[in-house]
Design a protein around this nucleic acid. Structure first.
Lengths: 107, 107
DNA sequence: TAACAACATTGTTAGCACGTTATGTCGTTA
DNA sequence: TAACGACATAACGTGCTAACAATGTTGTTA
């Protein structure tokens, strides 16, 4: 059975996810993980995205606060989390982001 | 005096303005005031938009609640309010809306 | 000017968003 | 298995958002 992508997420949830300077920052930085975060020893930044720790550092808020921002974006399907050897990497879900953009242009 | 369009509104404010089902509804209805609201005796719905009263009715919330939603959209410069003979009419600010759309596609 | 209709504003309450610190979970490594 | 590092969750305080009821303001009309 084909799973809808995403499972009929509310447009309000999507907009609220990006209606935050911090989360816009995260999305912006993840456009180019190599340029915006220090070099990673494990996990290809291009393929898997940036390590959670780096995001926490750059945001300048506590670790749980950053964790929640990331969760909001993941729940909205705008970010994809990859667990790998004790770390979690985040990257943009370009497909979902593009769908959101296309929908917004119909407002 | 010509007012800048818009006066450097925060992107977060803009997104929060539309991150609400109620306000998305208002914007949607105002795409076609003639179709979505009862006929008005005064004020051309095409030119000036729909009367405040009609929006209150369709939203189904109290008048102050609707008034505040409209104020959020006006403050974000996405709606334009026109006062005319004791009534207030609201219409979409298509220029600002388009600017917002174009900006969103760069996220 | 008095009365009324159309909106806006204020006061209040409930819920949500976002920050913190503290604690829990889980995989890795010694 | 014990210890540690990475990350998630819990608990809590605070400020913002959104609802309603009540009141204020403003323009029109009698």
């Amino acid at each position: 059975m084909q799973k809808l992508i995403p499972p009929l997420l509310e447009r309000e949830q999507l907009l609220k996810a990006i209606a935050s300077e911090r989360r816009l920052q995260i999305l912006e930085w993840l456009k180019d993980p190599v340029a915006n975060f220090p070099p990673q020893e494990h996990g290809d930044p291009i393929e898997h995205g940036a390590c959670n720790l780096f995001v926490v550092d750059r945001l300048g808020v506590s670790q749980p606060a950053a964790s929640r921002h990331l969760k909001v974006l993941v729940d909205a399907d705008l970010l994809i989390a990859t667990r790998r050897k004790g770390w979690v990497y985040y990257r943009r879900n370009e497909v979902a982001i593009r769908q959101l953009m296309e929908w917004v242009t119909t407002i």
